[in-house]
């Protein structure tokens, strides 16, 4: 981060009436980074994105774009472009006209803008769709048009507001791969807003987890997943069994609050592994998930935990009501603050 950040937010705050949507966010995003803002709805992530785009004026704080303060610049004066959640394609224009729009308002001639728009459409693998109207396209295709339209004007930073939210699972996974590829190929900064933790983990170089108008944790996907700092992050990014300081002492013999991921727990049949905490309990429920099975265990100490077992690796299948011993290696007790 020695170079100038693509985006620098300083003390960014936004209040709507008496509601504080964003409460003093400080953040640097490096050029060429795939950065995700992850959080539940109402956590302020979309408002931050809209302030970067210029649709909302911050109540206080500044937005810098490559060192230039753009806080009070209009959206059309900023070198950032947005892919909207509802795609926001112009319904009265053809796909080609939609994509060429940004060039048209910049005064690029018809031939120039159409050939650039065609290139952008082929980048998102929609060659030959230029003459159609947005209403004649599927959700995934509209998504690509929105992407092409934002990319054709060569922004320095691309903002994506839950762009895959309306797509079905298969298409979403496919678009994730394509987004990542396009980002790598063009090398521009992507800022991606999502409430889907899996999507954020899959795509991002770094993730900022938002809650109640502020960033609660910032780090790489691996850092955020392996070392959640707070109970909120432990529960929101993946699932965890969260033990408060008192519970941790009583149940695990561990000092300080901590979280355990389901995949780090195992049902022990036989010798207890070394350096592990073992817990006794009863199987309350088993849920078959295909590659793995989620086993819900009610611990005798009065806590419910989930164990994720790879199906073909488990020695025997757990049955409901069975008394079992659950073990977790001490290194997987993630301390919470």
């Amino acid at each position: 981060m020695s170079t100038q950040p693509a985006i620098r937010l300083s003390g960014l705050t936004k209040t709507f009436g008496s509601v504080t949507a964003v409460a003093g966010v400080d953040l640097d995003i490096a050029p060429g980074e795939f950065f995700s803002m992850l959080g539940p709805s109402g956590s302020g992530k979309t408002t931050v994105l809209r302030m970067i785009a210029g649709f909302e004026t911050p109540t206080s704080g500044t937005v810098e774009l490559f060192g230039k303060d753009v806080t009070s610049d209009a959206p059309f004066d900023r070198d950032v472009n947005t892919v909207f959640q509802d795609y926001a394609l112009f319904p009265h224009m053809s796909v080609l006209e939609n994509v060429a729009y940004g060039l048209r308002v910049r005064g690029v001639g018809k031939a120039g803008r159409e050939s650039a728009a065609k290139d952008a459409l082929s980048l998102v693998r929609l060659d030959g769709y230029g003459d159609r109207k947005p209403s004649q396209l599927s959700g995934g295709q509209r998504q690509r048009v929105a992407l092409a339209r934002a990319l054709v004007v060569e922004p320095k930073v691309l903002l994506l507001d839950e762009p895959l939210g309306a797509l079905d699972l298969k298409l979403r996974e496919q678009m994730q791969v394509e987004l990542k590829e396009i980002q790598r190929r063009l090398g521009i900064t992507f800022i991606f807003v999502t409430h889907d933790q899996e999507e954020a983990l899959t795509l991002s170089d770094r993730i900022a987890v938002f809650n109640e108008g502020n960033i609660v944790q910032l780090g790489t996907a691996e850092e955020v997943y392996r070392h959640p700092k707070t109970t909120f992050v432990a529960n929101f990014v993946g699932t965890s069994a969260v033990f408060s300081a008192d519970e941790a002492k009583a149940v695990l013999g561990h000092s300080g609050a901590c979280a355990i991921r389901p995949e780090h727990l195992e049902i022990v049949r036989g010798k207890t592994p070394s350096d592990s905490v073992t817990l006794k309990g009863k199987v309350a429920e088993t849920i078959f998930l295909g590659a793995s099975t989620r086993i819900i265990v009610d611990l005798d100490a009065g806590k419910r935990v989930a164990v994720l077992e790879q199906n073909d690796l488990a020695q025997t299948e757990a049955t409901i009501g069975e008394s079992v011993t659950v073990a977790v290696h001490k290194k997987f007790l993630a301390p919470l603050t």
Binding site: F76, D86, F90, H92, Y101
Partner: peptide, 27 residues
């Protein structure tokens, strides 16, 4: 007319007059 269309036009560089002529007026 969804607000996002007006935002999209501004986002792509369309100033008020152009947004009115190219996006709002036809719709």
């Amino acid at each position: 007319v969804p607000d996002s269309l007006l935002e999209a036009s501004a986002d792509l560089g369309g100033k008020t007059g152009r947004t009115f002529r190219h996006v709002i007026l036809p719709l």
